[in-house]
Nucleic acid binder design. Structure first.
Length: 662
DNA sequence: AAAAAAC
C-alpha cells in the first residue's frame, strides 16, 4: 500500500500537509455578505416562451398530440438526428462561435444544437480529443487519454477508491421489492442490450463488475421510460443506479434538437441540458459530478456542475463548454435560470437524489419552483427518478406531484441488510459527552476514520477545537464555513490527514467516504431518518462499521423510532432504551409515531410503497411524532455519570504525528 | 430548534 493521498482533483491540493491544526487558523467570522449590484440584477423573466416545444415524445409514446414531430424519436430505431448533429471540423481549427445553424432543419424554427464549443476551442484550450460527438445518428467516441483515465478512474490500488468488487458475491442475497404496474424484469449483468456498449466500457474502466441490486432494477426501468422512486441505502450503488441507465439512453439516442430560442438574445448563451440531477448539499453534488465524468468519458455527453459558494464565473464558463447533464444544488440553479443561462425546456431526465430531503419543508418550495414554475418539461414528457435511503410516507405523497405511474423500488444494503453496521447506544448526559467522547477515542481500536455528528454549527466548531486541544487530529464541516474550508475539511478527512471530523447534517447524506469505521452521534437528531442516513456513512460497500449514539432524556422524542430501527437491524436494544420507549409508548406499538407506521419497515430493508399500505386512504398520515411523554419520571442509571472529567492524557499512538492515515 | 440551500 502506498502512501497515496488522494485528492479528488480538488483545489485543495496545495494546502495538503499544512498540519493537523488547519482548523485553528481559520477565521471563523461570518463570510462577507457583500453582493455587487450587478449581481442582483437578474435577467428578468423567463424568455423561453413558445419556441421550445417543437420536439416531442422522446419518451415511449406518451401519446398522440399533434405537435410537429421533427421526424419523431423512435426508441431503438434511433431517432432522426439530422437536427442534432454538430459539425466537427475535420481537423480544422474552427472559429470560436457556436453554431446556431439548423442542420437540415426543415421548415420553420431551425434547430440548433446545444453548445458544442469543445471541439471548436482547441485553438486556445488545452488539447483534448477525448471528447466524443454525435453526427448523423452515430455516436463518435473520443480517443482514449491515459492521463484523463488516471484522473477519473484512479488505479486499482487506490485504497480510498475501493468501491467495487467487494462482497459483490453477496448481491444476490439482497432483498428487493418492486411495486407498480408492469415492472420490467431486472437485468443481471452489464451487457448490451439493454446497455450501450460505450457505457459498458466506461463501467469496466471504473472496475464495476456486476450491477448492484438497485442497478439491476433501475436499468430496465429507466430503459423503458418509466418513472422510479427508489428506496435504497447509500452504499448500495444508487448513483450508478441513475447514471448508468440515463447515460446509456443518451449514448444510444444522441442529443435532442434544441429549438431555437428567439429570445435568447445577444446576451448570449443559454444551456439546454438534457439531464438534471438535484441534490441537497454542495459536496454531494460535487461527488455525483465526479461520478458522471467517469461514465460520460469519451462520449458526446458533457456533464456540468453548479452549486453555491463557488465562483459563478467559472461555472458559467464550464456550462458554455457543454452542459448536457447538469448536477446542481437548487439555489444556484435558480440563480442561473434567473440569469437566463440555463433552460430546462429540454430536460428528458430529472433525478432527485436524497429525494426525501429535497421534498421536505426546507427544500420543497425551491424544488417546486424549478420543476413546476420554470420551463421544465412536463411530468408526462420526461422521466423522473427519485432516490433516497429513507422515504417517509408523507414525502411519498408529496412526490406524486412529480411522478407519473412510477415503479417503487425497495432495496437492502450490500451485505444483506444494514446488519453490517453495529449500532451501540450509550446513555450519556449532555454534561458528560465530552468526557465520554474522549474515552471512546482513547479506547476504541482505530483502523479508520471517525465521523462525529452534532446538531449545531457552533457545537461542531467547539467540539473540533476541544479535540484539537486534546491533541486529536480533527476537523469540522458545517454550513457556516466557507466552501473552501468545507472542501478542505472533507479532503483532509477523506485522506486521513485528520481522521476525525465533526459534522452537522451537511455531511449526513450521500457522501461516499471510504474507510469510515466509526460514526458517533454525539447529539442525536430529532428525525430518525437523519440518524439512518448518518450511520450509512460507515459500513459501505459491504464493509463493517460501528455506529455509537449518545442518548439521554432530551432525545426521548425519537426513542420509539430509534428502538424500531435497532430491532429492524437486529441490533441490541439496551435496557434503558427499552424502558424509556415503553414509558413513551402507551398502548404498545400501535402508536402513530412508530417507525413502522412511517412507510418504512417491513422486511427489515428499504422502505414501503405507501400505495400498497394505504387502505384506500389517499393521505391520512401526519408527520408529527407522538407527544405522549407519559409523565413518568423514573430514574435510569446515568451511564455517563460519575465519570471523571477529562484529565490530560496522551492521545493514542494512532493519532500521534498524524500526517496521513493510509 | 437546527440545518441546508444564491448572492
Amino acid at each position: 500500500m502506498s502512501n497515496g493521498s488522494y485528492n479528488n482533483g480538488s483545489l485543495d491540493q496545495q494546502f495538503a500537509g499544512m498540519g493537523i491544526n488547519e482548523n485553528r487558523s481559520n477565521n471563523r467570522g461570518p463570510p462577507s455578505r457583500y453582493v455587487p449590484p450587478h449581481m442582483r440584477n437578474s435577467a428578468g423573466g423567463n424568455d423561453n416562451g413558445g419556441a421550445s416545444t417543437g420536439w416531442s415524445d422522446w419518451n415511449n409514446g406518451s401519446g398522440g398530440n399533434d405537435r410537429p414531430r421533427n421526424g419523431g424519436y423512435q426508441r431503438g430505431g434511433g431517432w432522426n438526428s439530422s437536427y442534432s448533429d454538430y459539425g466537427r471540423g475535420g481537423g480544422q481549427n474552427r472559429s470560436n462561435f457556436y453554431e446556431r445553424g439548423s442542420y437540415g432543419g426543415g421548415g420553420g424554427g431551425g434547430y440548433r444544437n446545444n453548445y458544442r464549443q469543445h471541439d471548436n476551442d482547441r485553438g486556445y484550450q488545452r488539447r483534448d480529443d477525448s471528447h466524443g460527438y454525435w453526427k448523423d445518428g452515430v455516436h463518435h467516441v473520443g480517443n482514449r487519454n491515459p492521463r484523463t483515465e488516471k484522473d477519473l478512474f484512479g488505479s486499482a490500488e487506490d485504497v480510498d477508491r475501493q468501491h467495487t468488487g467487494i462482497n459483490f458475491e453477496k448481491y444476490d442475497d439482497i432483498p428487493v421489492e418492486a411495486s407498480g404496474d408492469g415492472c420490467p424484469e431486472p437485468v443481471t449483468t452489464f451487457t448490451n442490450p439493454p446497455l450501450d456498449n460505450h457505457l459498458i466500457s466506461n463501467i469496466e474502466l471504473a472496475r464495476y463488475a456486476i450491477p448492484t441490486p438497485v442497478q439491476k432494477y433501475s436499468i430496465p426501468i429507466v430503459g423503458a421510460g418509466r418513472d422510479l422512486m427508489a428506496c435504497a441505502q447509500t452504499g448500495s450503488g444508487k448513483t450508478g443506479g441513475f447514471l448508468f441507465p440515463v447515460l446509456s439512453e443518451l449514448f444510444l439516442k444522441g442529443p435532442l434538437p434544441v429549438a431555437d430560442d428567439p429570445h435568447a438574445g445577444y446576451r448570449g448563451r443559454k444551456a439546454h441540458p438534457t439531464v438534471l440531477i438535484l441534490a441537497p448539499t454542495r459536496e454531494l453534488v460535487s461527488q455525483i459530478f465526479e461520478e458522471a465524468k467517469k461514465f460520460a468519458y469519451r462520449s458526446w455527453v458533457r456533464p456540468a456542475v453548479v452549486y453555491g459558494g463557488a465562483d459563478i464565473g467559472a461555472q458559467l464558463r464550464q456550462i458554455d463548454r457543454g452542459c448536457d447533464l447538469l448536477v446542481a444544488t437548487p439555489g444556484r440553479l435558480v440563480d442561473l435560470i434567473e440569469r437566463a443561462r440555463i433552460s430546462l425546456a429540454n430536460i428528458q431526465y430529472l433525478v432527485l437524489d436524497e429525494a426525501d430531503r429535497m421534498l421536505d419543508m426546507g427544500f420543497e418550495p425551491q424544488i417546486r419552483r424549478i420543476v413546476e414554475k420554470e420551463d421544465m418539461t412536463s411530468v408526462q414528457d420526461r422521466v423522473t427518478l427519485m432516490f433516497s435511503a429513507t422515504f417517509p410516507r408523507d414525502i411519498q405523497y408529496l412526490a406524486r406531484d412529480f411522478l407519473k405511474d412510477y415503479i417503487f423500488l425497495s432495496v437492502g444494503r450490500v451485505g444483506s441488510t444494514s446488519e453490517n453496521i453495529t449500532q451501540k447506544v450509550e446513555y450519556v448526559e449532555d454534561a458528560d459527552k465530552r468526557s465520554v467522547l474522549l474515552d471512546i477515542l482513547h479506547s476504541t481500536e482505530v483502523s479508520g476514520l471517525t465521523l462525529v455528528f452534532v446538531e449545531t454549527k457552533r457545537m461542531a466548531d467547539a467540539l473540533s477545537d476541544f479535540l484539537l486541544c486534546n491533541n486529536f487530529p480533527a476537523t469540522a464541516i458545517h454550513g457556516d464555513r466557507t466552501q473552501r474550508e468545507r472542501e478542505r475539511a472533507l479532503d483532509s478527512f477523506r485522506t486521513g490527514r485528520t481522521p476525525i471530523m465533526v459534522a452537522t447534517a451537511v455531511a449526513a447524506r450521500g457522501l461516499d467516504i471510504a474507510n469510515v469505521s466509526h460514526v458517533i452521534s454525539y447529539d442525536l437528531p430529532t428525525d430518525i431518518d437523519d440518524y439512518v442516513h448518518r450511520i450509512g456513512r460507515t459500513g459501505r460497500a459491504g464493509n463493517t462499521g460501528l455506529a455509537t449514539a449518545f442518548f439521554n432524556r432530551n432525545n426521548k422524542n425519537i426513542v420509539n423510532d430509534f428502538v424500531d430501527i435497532l430491532k429492524e437491524a437486529n441490533q441490541e436494544v439496551p435496557g434503558f432504551l427499552e424502558s424509556i420507549a415503553r414509558e413513551n409508548r402507551p398502548g404498545g406499538r400501535g402508536g402513530r409515531g412508530g417507525y413502522g407506521g412511517r412507510g418504512r419497515g417491513g422486511g427489515g430493508f428499504g422502505g414501503r410503497d405507501f400505495r400498497k399500505y394505504n387502505n384506500g386512504n389517499d393521505y391520512s398520515y401526519s408527520r408529527g411524532g407522538d407527544n405522549f411523554n407519559g409523565g413518568g419520571y423514573n430514574n435510569y442509571p446515568p451511564l455517563g455519570g460519575g465519570r471523571p472529567s477529562y484529565a490530560p492524557r496522551d492521545v493514542p499512538m494512532q493519532y500521534q504525528n498524524k500526517t496521513s492515515w493510509f
